[in-house]
Design a protein around this nucleic acid. Structure first.
Length: 232
DNA sequence: GCATTAATTGGTC
DNA sequence: GACCAATTAATGC
């Protein structure tokens, strides 16, 4: 998977390919195919570099109290994973697992550091990326403290819709109830109950494990009342 | 099909 | 609202 032919124009590597240093380093990356449901970053393991997603979907998670999983975010093509353990600490602060079959481009810490030193525009893009992530995690803290379970579940579904889209009937991203719970910050049973309730209220539809949005405006309204809409 | 995993429901603290 | 147990539906082989 050569960067020159990569369609992900928003990828930080691709964006900076015009700089010869980036283009040169891009030749030394390692690309790997990772099957669905495979963990490719273990929390607490030694940081070796960053993964840029060429294609596929992955989840980023952190182990909380009682070994409960907390999903931090989901990422798709063009995005980067592993940066949390970058720089300051030597171990990855997060784990990451594929949700779909994916192709990842790996850049070693050493290569990246050389690029940070040599290419300001690349470093600048990363800085903006970190800043945006920080802002998202700040509003997330607020959400967790103030939202009801119903709002958290609606918020999670709206996020899935914003980020991965929706076809005629259902959300494009099909997650297990357990993953939705781990992302929303509640339990699997609560997610199931909320989805069932919202389906009865004609705001959602469901068929098997698939979930779809029926009344987007009403769902948005419930969240916007608490000023939580935008971001994340 | 059978076996394993996920979704759902009901009840308790 | 979380945790636990029992039932049922979905999925892998």
């Amino acid at each position: 998977m050569e960067c020159v032919h990569c369609p992900n124009l928003n990828c930080l590597i691709k964006k900076n390919m015009v700089r010869s240093a980036v283009a040169e380093k891009a030749l030394h990356k390692r690309t790997m195919r990772v099957a669905k449901n495979t963990q490719f970053i273990m929390e607490g393991t030694l940081v070796q570099g960053l993964f840029f997603i060429y294609s596929g979907i992955i989840k980023v998670s952190k182990t909380g109290i009682n070994a409960k999983e907390q999903i931090v975010r989901f990422s798709k093509e063009g995005e980067v994973v592993g940066y949390r353990g970058f720089g300051s600490s030597a171990e990855y602060q997060i784990g990451s697992t594929t949700i779909e079959d994916s192709i990842l481009c790996f850049f070693s810490t050493q290569t990246l550091e050389e690029l940070f030193q040599a290419v300001p525009s690349f470093t600048y893009d990363f800085m903006n990326f970190y800043a945006a992530e920080l802002s998202i995690s700040e509003t997330k803290v607020r959400k967790f403290a103030q939202m009801t379970v119903r709002e958290k579940v609606i918020d999670a579904i709206l996020y899935m819709n914003r980020k991965f889209g929706h076809n005629e009937k259902f959300l494009n991203l099909q997650l297990s109830r357990k993953d939705v719970a781990a992302f929303a910050g509640t339990t699997e049973e609560q997610v199931i109950r909320m989805i069932s309730g919202l389906t009865k209220e004609k705001l959602l539809r469901k068929k098997g494990k698939e979930v779809g949005i029926v009344d987007l405006e009403k769902l948005k309204l419930e969240i916007s009342e608490h000023n939580f809409f935008l971001s994340s």
